Amino acid sequence: MNQVILIGNLTRDPEMKYTQSGLAITRFTLALNRPKKDGQDQGADFINIVTFGKLAENCANYLAKGGKTAVSGRINSGSYEDKDGKKVYTVDVIANSVEFLEWGDKKESSGTDYSDIDGFHPTDNDDIPF
């Protein structure tokens, strides 16, 4: 079973791109506080999140740096060679559900009510490359 549920805060605004076939892909990073041990702060983990389709568009439009967000998905590992020819290993969470727990700056600046947003779950994953 490969399932993960995370709650954290966005480290920066999400970045959205489109594939050649028109599929939206949005990436963002969540900062997750580690449990405190003996009253001392243990730091944070930074987890890369990837979303697709309508979910990706909603994340790009409505999430903002600092906003508390819950993500449900699966872990995806991979690798690539950097420009120096060194192998770089990656770990991402491919989200199938994102819950906006705090709205952040994008809602506050526009004053729009987003309570009826559609697309918290991707509707068509046929174009997902993996």
Score class of each variant (00 low, 15 high):
Arg74Trp: 00
His121Asp: 09
Lys87Cys: 03
Glu108Tyr: 11
Ser110Glu: 12
Phe46Val: 05
Leu63Asp: 13
Pro129Trp: 00
Thr11Arg: 10
Pro14Met: 10
Ile7Glu: 06
Phe120Gly: 14
Thr69Met: 04
Gln20Gly: 14
Leu6Val: 04
Val91Lys: 01
Leu63Pro: 09
Gly78Thr: 00
Glu99Leu: 09
Thr112Asn: 11
Leu32Lys: 06
Asn48Asp: 10
Leu23Gln: 10
Gly39Thr: 04
Pro35Thr: 09
Phe46His: 09
Asn125Gly: 08
Phe52Tyr: 15
Ala44Val: 11
Thr11Ala: 11
Asn61Tyr: 08
Thr90Pro: 08
Asp116Phe: 00
Leu55Val: 12
Glu57Ala: 15
Ala95Tyr: 02
Tyr62Val: 14
Lys83Cys: 03
Val91Asp: 00
Lys17Ile: 07
Gly8Tyr: 01
Asn2Gly: 06
Ala95Met: 10
Lys17His: 09
Val98Cys: 03
Asp127Trp: 01
Ala44Tyr: 01
Gly85Leu: 14
Asn33Tyr: 00
Gly85Ile: 01
Ser97Gln: 11
Val91Pro: 00
Ser110Gln: 14
Gln42Pro: 07
Val98Gln: 02
Ala31Ser: 14
Thr26Glu: 07
Phe28Ala: 02
Glu81Lys: 15
Arg74Asp: 02
Thr69Ala: 05
Gly53Leu: 11
Thr29Phe: 03
Ser79Trp: 02
Leu101Cys: 05
Gly104Asp: 09
Ser97Ile: 12
Lys54Tyr: 01
Thr112Ala: 11
Ser79Pro: 04
Gln20Pro: 12
Leu32Ala: 11
Ile75Trp: 06
Ala60His: 02
Lys37Asn: 12
Leu101Met: 14
Asp45Leu: 15
His121Trp: 06
Asn61Ser: 12
Gly78Pro: 03
Val98Ile: 14
Thr51Gln: 06
Val4Phe: 03
Asp126Leu: 15
Ser72Ala: 14
Asn9Ile: 11
Leu23Glu: 14
Cys59Gln: 11
Val98Tyr: 03
Asp124Lys: 05
Tyr89Phe: 14
Met1His: 13
Leu30Ala: 02
Leu10Arg: 01
Gly22Cys: 08
Met16Cys: 15
Pro122Asn: 10
Gly85Gln: 07
Gly85Trp: 00
Ser79Phe: 02
Ala70Val: 04
Leu55Asn: 06
Tyr62Phe: 11
Val93His: 06
Lys83Leu: 02
Thr26Tyr: 02
Ser21Ile: 03
Gly73Phe: 03
Lys86Val: 07
Met1Pro: 15
Thr26Trp: 01
Val91Arg: 07
Tyr80Cys: 08
Lys83Thr: 12
Ile94Lys: 09
Val98Asn: 07
Gly66Ile: 00
Phe28Cys: 05
Ile49Val: 14
Asp84Val: 05
Gly85Thr: 04
Thr19Lys: 07
Ile128Asp: 09
His121Ile: 13
Ile94Gln: 15
Thr11Cys: 13
Tyr62Asn: 15
Ser21Asp: 06
Gly119Asp: 04
Gly22Tyr: 00
Asn9Ser: 14
